[in-house]
Simulated scan of single mutants.
Amino acid sequence: MVDMNGQDPRVLANQHREFQKRAEMVQQQIGMVQISMEDCNRALTTIEELNNISMGSEMMFPIGSGSFIYASISHTDKAVVDIGAGLSVERPISDAKEILQRRRERLTTALNNMNNAMLQLGQQMQAIESYLTKLQQAQGQVGSQ
């Protein structure tokens, strides 16, 4: 928490603005993590659905911009997964699923940390706002006497 006793209100207002900027940055990061989590969940759901599909089945696959192509499934026992740093590897479905589940766990932890950071920033901003409001009210009472 911010110690506000005796601080110049202008300094506190600057701190408040800085907290707002940080909160905006964290909110953007939260959005990116949420998109990554949705992507990971989509991949896990697709892997689960491979149990219901036989080799040679024809499916539509997204190619971007809301467009799809038809393709035949040649392997239902393997997947190519991104392992980071721009590298992808072919793994058995069970391994691919584990990799994606671990990724989802890391993303969930990151999201929880970011949400906690947002909560702390919000509390700090609220404390500053409350202090400045009380200060203004006290000055208004002194000025009216």
Rank of each mutant, 00 (worst) to 15 (best):
M114S: 02
R42F: 10
E38P: 02
Q124A: 13
S88Q: 12
N115A: 13
N41G: 10
A79W: 09
E105G: 00
L50H: 06
V81R: 02
S57M: 01
E38I: 05
I93D: 07
L87R: 03
R106E: 15
I35F: 15
L50V: 03
D77L: 00
G64D: 12
I53E: 05
D95S: 08
M32P: 00
N116I: 09
E105H: 01
E38R: 03
K78R: 15
S88P: 10
E48R: 02
Q101K: 13
T45S: 12
F68R: 00
C40M: 09
G64L: 08
E58M: 01
L111T: 02
E38M: 09
R104G: 04
S36W: 07
A85Q: 13
I63F: 03
I63E: 05
G86K: 03
N115M: 14
P62D: 14
P62I: 07
M55H: 05
R106T: 09
M60Q: 15
N113W: 13
I99K: 03
N113A: 07
Q123H: 09
E48Q: 05
R104F: 12
L100A: 04
T108G: 05
L50N: 06
L44R: 02
N116R: 05
E98T: 04
I47L: 15
I73L: 12
G122W: 08
I63C: 00
M114A: 04
R42E: 15
A71G: 11
Q123C: 06
S74K: 06
M114K: 01
L44V: 07
K97T: 10
T108A: 11
R106G: 07
E98C: 01
A43S: 12
S88K: 06
V80G: 06
